[in-house]
Design a protein around this nucleic acid. Structure first.
Lengths: 165, 165
DNA sequence: TATTGACCTCAACTAAGCTTGAGGTTCTAT
DNA sequence: ATAGAACCTCAAGCTTAGTTGAGGTCAATA
């Protein structure tokens, strides 16, 4: 029932083995294959056989996903690499440097949102004119005045949005 | 064609007015209503009529969404408030304090991920044993050894996952 | 009154990222 | 040789957060 495999290091891996060792469901590996994220060779009987390098590849995919990069983007990042050559340290460096920058961006956006939120907790005006939470891009005064700015309903319980936001 | 409305402050708002003033599509307002996030009264002809307080409510919803809170959670947070009473500053304080904490959590998770990533950029081992990116919960050694820890394939181009991760 | 823009409901569609199931085949230990 | 685990494909389903369209009604203005 169980394959005794722990010793021939260069044998290709079945999908089940990759699943077990990567912690990714078989169905997900199939799915990744349809999306072009990984590739497989096939056995005579049409079963998937993976070079061991695929484990590294899915490891990279998982890390990228944790940073919030969508699969399509991961796919295109990986796609420029020569097909199925194992990822080198340099590949990894380039990829991870890009992703780290994107992560940095996300973090700083969230951080400034948090700071605005903190500043607004005791206020609660949510005024389109005055509240940084409502007016994230500081577009005040730059657009022609509609009824919006004139309207006395702009108060505590009547928060409106920016015209072009 | 166009209603001349800029002056009767207490009239209820039509869905189109709310859409325009909140920057949210009419279809989205309908959708929010089906999800229980907002409520409307109906005109004799079954058209939606909103108390002006709805503008504040959707403002709160939008802010919460920016912090990454799912709609279902926003809904249940808003649901405990007496129905259709305008949100007070205290309501806002409680809600925003909760959401700020969750935002803080997300930020610190992302930050530590970024730091790990930064540390791993030049390394690229992605080793299950040694790499913090692969082993986020520090579960090393705590689970019985499978072929996993014994397997010499655990190397540069052969990264595996944790058993229970 | 007639026009017409705004509104109504309900169903179906989108996108991402998968999972589940049906129906059938392969692999490998015994 | 054979049992049964593991594999295959393809289609459909799930979730979140909406959008789009069809077919029909309402309301304000000319």
């Amino acid at each position: 029932m169980k394959k005794d495999n722990g010793s021939d290091f260069k044998r290709e891996l079945t999908v089940g083995e990759v699943a077990e060792r990567s912690g990714i469901a078989v169905s997900t590996l199939h799915f990744y294959e349809t999306k072009g994220l990984i590739r497989s060779n096939r056995s005579r009987g049409n079963q998937r056989r993976y070079p061991r390098a695929v484990l590294r590849r899915v490891a990279v995919i998982k890390v990228a996903q944790r940073t919030g990069i969508p699969l399509a983007e991961i796919q295109s990042a990986l796609a420029v690499l020569p097909d199925e050559r194992p990822l080198t340290v340099e590949d990894w460096s380039r990829l991870s440097e890009t992703w780290r920058q994107q992560l940095d961006d996300r973090i700083s956006k969230l951080t400034s949102l948090r700071d605005q939120l903190t500043g607004c907790i005791g206020c609660g005006c949510l005024s389109m004119r005055d509240c940084p939470l409502r007016n994230p891009y500081d577009v005040l005064g730059s657009e022609g005045a509609g009824p919006r700015l004139m309207d006395p309903s702009e108060s505590m319980d009547d928060a409106e949005s920016a015209p072009g936001a």
